[in-house]
Design a protein around this nucleic acid. Structure first.
Lengths: 192, 192
DNA sequence: CGATTCTTTGAAAACAGTCAATCTGTGTGG
DNA sequence: CCACACAGATTGACTGTTTTCAAAGAATCG
């Protein structure tokens, strides 16, 4: 399972064998069954998690009790509740496997240690954060400027490799519409 | 004008006089009149900008030609289009003064240099980024889980010091509703 | 004052949500 | 292998919310 991660890293940054070993020495592995949770509301998110295989989502329960999807993450992606991870406070979020998945993870302190030891890795993780900022900003823009249908079409564009692995109601919960509405959008797209 | 910034910093981190001088030596100042733009779509956002006084907004034009507000920033806040700043590519955004404002700014290279010289400052800016990530994630959650009225009420909660300095149509453009809808929401709140 | 910007209002139309029922596909246990 | 349960998707009828368009009413500023 670490192989996937090593490949992922080596395609993106240059590390010595010693550095790879160091990273591996702190890593832990876990298989997660479909529908299993690795983080539940109220728990503290204390790990940085890399997805070697599978599909997970970060979600949060709204005031009506519906699960809303903050984001999906798949092979070669990372997932955590940043807020809880950074503050050390209990999370509002859930992280759940949508498919049987395999992940690598590092405790917060271990990961911090690694970043301290390996500047290239630190720089790389910072780049990832910056990219996710851009993604989030664009999502906010879409959410305040597009109709449900436009949001759906953009979702497909932005997630070409995963949209057909997701049940429709989860896409709906990501877009902020009901599953019925999304079902109708998909059936009768507005022709322009 | 630098005084404000020095005060801002010294309330948050500890720097030597030499470090303050260094920061100041690279800083530039600017006054921005209400309705004036400091960034327009197509330009490259090459500065980190601190607001000493006033109120600005980051916005973007949607496909119907409406200006949508990505965020507001005021005294002791920072504003830039991260995407353009980071990539060096032309921005999709505008930054415009809503009130007569005074800002300090640093060119990207100068700022990078400062961060390299002053680790405490680097750490501080990283903290700010992380906080803004959390803010964005929460905004996304609100946008997919709340009604227009709830969004408005949350906006007031989250922006207690500026919501009454903003014209209503700009709040609407931040929330993703029309000004007419926001006007009605405000007039006839649902009683619960 | 006059011009501009901002806000409000009304009526109609478009859009999205709710509720209830049905349909489909999948996988599990007997 | 079948029957059944279950998760997921769809549909219809209805309700509620938001947008659109047009007009008019405040407020602000030079």
């Amino acid at each position: 399972m670490f192989d996937n991660f090593e490949k992922y890293l080596s395609e993106r940054i240059t590390l010595t064998n010693g550095e790879f070993s160091l990273i591996q020495s702190f890593s832990k592995e876990k298989k997660i069954a479909k529908r299993e949770f690795i983080l539940r509301q109220g728990e503290i998110c204390g790990d940085a998690t890399f997805i070697a295989k599978g599909l997970l989502r970060l979600s949060r329960t709204d005031h009506k009790g519906n699960e809303r999807t903050l984001r999906f993450a798949t092979e070669n992606g990372w997932i955590s509740d940043r807020e809880s991870y950074l503050t050390g406070r209990p999370s509002n979020c859930n992280i759940e496997a949508i498919e049987n998945s395999e992940v690598l993870f590092w405790g917060k302190e271990d990961f911090r240690h690694l970043l301290g030891q390996i500047p290239v890795l630190k720089r790389f993780m910072k780049d990832l954060m910056e990219k996710s900022q851009v993604v989030n900003q664009n999502r906010i823009f879409t959410s305040i400027s597009s109709s449900a249908e436009e949001k759906y079409l953009q979702f497909i564009e932005n997630h070409p490799t995963i949209f057909n692995r997701l049940p429709l109601h989860m896409i709906a919960s990501y877009l902020g519409v009901t599953r019925e509405t999304l079902s109708r959008i998909r059936r009768y797209p507005v022709n322009k």
